[in-house]
Each structure stands twice: as structure tokens, then as C-alpha cells.
């Protein structure tokens, strides 16, 4: 656990910088924006205590807010998925429960499990984020479209990250 700490700190910084410098500048068709930084909440180990999960989410959201001029919005959405994560993990746990020492990856628990895990969290996060950003229900349908499209792109990048970064981690 302790020897994996530097890796997590590094991926925190890498994900934040990737988000603010690269992904915030990718705009598919004008207003679709992937928010890949929440991948950090996905990769935290199963044993992470609840309060730590919430604090990390708060810090992560606040850092992203700091860079994108959106005080509180990312923080709110990210803390919320951190709150949902333990119950979600319990709800979709495999028959023989999570093995100690394993991590929430495709490699350990398979494609379908990972898809369920990420889709729910991404949808919850993006729905909250976009509705807080708009702060209004006037643009309901355009906001729904943004949520679906952005979630799809986030999901694609989250899966790409699984295929590349974490395989290397495993072989170490």
C-alpha cells in the first residue's frame, strides 16, 4: 500500500495536467468536453477508507476548478462520485467478493465489470457537473446531449488509459 503511494501521487499530477492542458482544449463539435481526471477516483484501491476518498476527491475537484475558473462545480461532482463509489462497488461486487491486493482494473475483474463501474460513475459525475454549470433547466435537451456525448468520450479515454498505462504497471 505504502510503496504504491508515489505512483498515485504521480498519476494525480499527470491526470490534472492532462485535463487542464490537453483535454480542456479538445472540443469535439464545439461543446463536447471529456473530463478524464475522474479516472483518478476510479483507480484508487478498494481498501481506501471513506473519509480519505472524500478528501482526495475534494482536493482533485478543487485543483481542476482552480484551473478552469469554475469554483465549486468540479468539486461538487467529484465529491459526489467519491461518495457513491463504495456503495456502487458493493452493488456490483463479483460472487467471491474483491480479492485483497487486487485493484479496480479490467485486468483483475474483467471488461463487463469495469464497464458497469465506470459508466455509472461517469454518468453521475457529468450529469451533476453540466447541470450545475448551466444552473438552469431551460437548456434541458442541449445539456442532456452534452452529458451523453461528453460521457462517451470520457469513457473512451478511460478505457484507452486502461489498455496502456496500467498493463505496464502490472508487469512491474
Amino acid at each position: 500500500m505504502i510503496n504504491r503511494l508515489p505512483g498515485y501521487i504521480l498519476s494525480f499530477f499527470v491526470l490534472v495536467l492532462l485535463q487542464v492542458l490537453v483535454f480542456n482544449n479538445i472540443q469535439f463539435s464545439g461543446y463536447v468536453n471529456p473530463y478524464v481526471y475522474i479516472l483518478f477516483i476510479f483507480i484508487l484501491p478498494f481498501e481506501t477508507p471513506g473519509y480519505l476518498l472524500l478528501f482526495i476527491a475534494f482536493l482533485l475537484g478543487l485543483t481542476i476548478d482552480l484551473f478552469s475558473n469554475t469554483p465549486g462545480m468540479h468539486t461538487f461532482a467529484t465529491v459526489f462520485i467519491a461518495f457513491v463509489r463504495p456503495s456502487l462497488l458493493r452493488a456490483i461486487s463479483p460472487r467471491d467478493d474483491y480479492q485483497p491486493g487486487s485493484s479496480p482494473t479490467i485486468h483483475d475483474y474483467g471488461f463487463v465489470w469495469y464497464l458497469k463501474y465506470t459508466v455509472v460513475l461517469i454518468l453521475v459525475h457529468h450529469t451533476l457537473l453540466f447541470f450545475i454549470e448551466v444552473y438552469d433547466f431551460i437548456y434541458f435537451f442541449s445539456t442532456m446531449w452534452r452529458i451523453v456525448a461528453s460521457s462517451l468520450f470520457t469513457l473512451i479515454f478511460v478505457f484507452i488509459a486502461q489498455l496502456f498505462v496500467f498493463k505496464k504497471d502490472k508487469s512491474r
Binding site: F58, D65, G72, M73, T75, F76
Partner: peptide, 9 residues
């Protein structure tokens, strides 16, 4: 934490 962030918004 949610109250703090909502307060910021």
C-alpha cells in the same frame, strides 16, 4: 464537503 463546494458555486 458538498456544502462547502456548493457554497463556492
Amino acid at each position: 464537503l458538498e456544502i462547502v463546494s456548493f457554497y463556492m458555486v
